[in-house]
Design a protein around this nucleic acid. Structure first.
Length: 109
DNA sequence: CGGGTGACTCAAA
DNA sequence: TTTTGAGCCACCC
């Protein structure tokens, strides 16, 4: 254990506010490793269920539900987001920029 | 120990 | 403009 990156990702994802989405890159950057966005995705696939993380609020930088294939079913991610007021078209978040939650900016410390 | 993989991203050709 | 290649971090074989 002790993998800070690992734990930090889990912790940060839990902080994503309702009706908002963020990106792997934003999370990675917030943790100081802007280029390890892949690891972020790996953390989700590995711990999202255990920690019950709102992984559906994490998409790639284009607002695409790139990880939907890893959910219980292919519509889970989209349904969850729509349930929170977001609109998904072609596996992409409509007005993604408006709903984008950047920990680096909004999670000001 | 070495090599491969992944829910990504950026830069170069 | 589209397509490649490389980087980065952690896990698995």
């Amino acid at each position: 254990m002790k993998s800070n990156f690992f734990d930090d990702v889990v912790d940060l994802v839990k902080l994503i506010p309702y009706g908002r989405v963020t990106t792997y890159g934003a999370i990675a950057k917030y943790l100081g490793a802007s280029k390890s966005s892949r690891t972020v995705g790996w953390v989700l696939s590995s711990q999202s269920i255990k920690h019950n993380l709102p992984a559906h609020r994490v998409v790639n930088r284009l607002g695409v539900l790139s990880g939907k294939n890893h959910f219980p079913n292919l519509l889970y991610m989209q349904q969850k987001l729509e349930e929170e007021g977001l609109i998904i078209t072609e596996d992409k978040v409509l007005n993604f920029e408006k709903f984008f939650w950047d920990p680096n900016k909004e999670l000001t410390l």
